[in-house]
């Protein structure tokens, strides 16, 4: 189980290969990667995203979310990788990988990790467009997505 923060882009294939190498207890691997779109929420053309984070708390909060996923599903390994700094359209922002004996747990745990990460991991996006820079507003749909795991 691991969480990782880095400035550089990541290679999804290499991360999955590292997690599955030498394992024979894993029947399912689910990956989710979030990419940077070329449009801002306003519809303007996006030049770049800048991800600000709370060093220390970001790692700790991701670890808490991952521990919660482990307590709910029989996952044998997981990775949560989040970038910070300047990110260009088309580049990856976040990666979640879950490994489990069967697919249902891997799918559900990956969705849970993303839904919780969105609303509780201390990261903030600022969008740079032709019209200037603006902080991205949080979305009520993200809160609703996280809330459904609380029932």
């Amino acid at each position: 189980m691991a969480v990782r923060l880095q400035r550089e882009p990541f290679d999804l294939g290499a991360e999955v290969a590292r997690l599955t190498e030498g394992r024979s207890d894993t029947g399912a691997v689910v990956t989710f990667s979030g990419l940077c779109r070329d449009r801002a929420d306003s519809g303007a053309r996006l030049v770049s995203l800048t991800l600000e984070h709370y060093p220390g708390m970001a790692e700790e909060e991701l670890s808490r979310i991952e521990a919660e996923a482990r307590s709910r599903w029989p996952i044998v390994d997981a990775l949560v990788l989040h970038r910070y700094g300047r990110i260009l359209p088309g580049e990856p922002i976040v990666l979640v990988v879950t490994l489990s004996p069967h697919r249902a747990a891997a799918f559900e745990a990956a969705q849970f990790l993303m839904d919780y990460l969105k609303t509780s991991a201390p990261f903030w996006k600022s969008e740079e467009t032709d019209e200037g820079e603006a902080w991205v507003a949080s979305k009520s749909t993200d809160d609703a997505a996280a809330d459904r795991w609380r029932s």
């Binding site: 989040h82 969105k118 991991a121 990261f123």
Partner: peptide, 24 residues
């Protein structure tokens, strides 16, 4: 650690304030 407005601050070393999160 995330807290609500009614959380006691006695003994706190570091208190952070920030907007709702928009990572992922």
């Amino acid at each position: 650690r995330h807290v609500k407005p009614d959380a006691a601050i006695a003994g706190a070393r570091e208190i952070a304030f920030f907007p709702p999160m928009t990572g992922g």
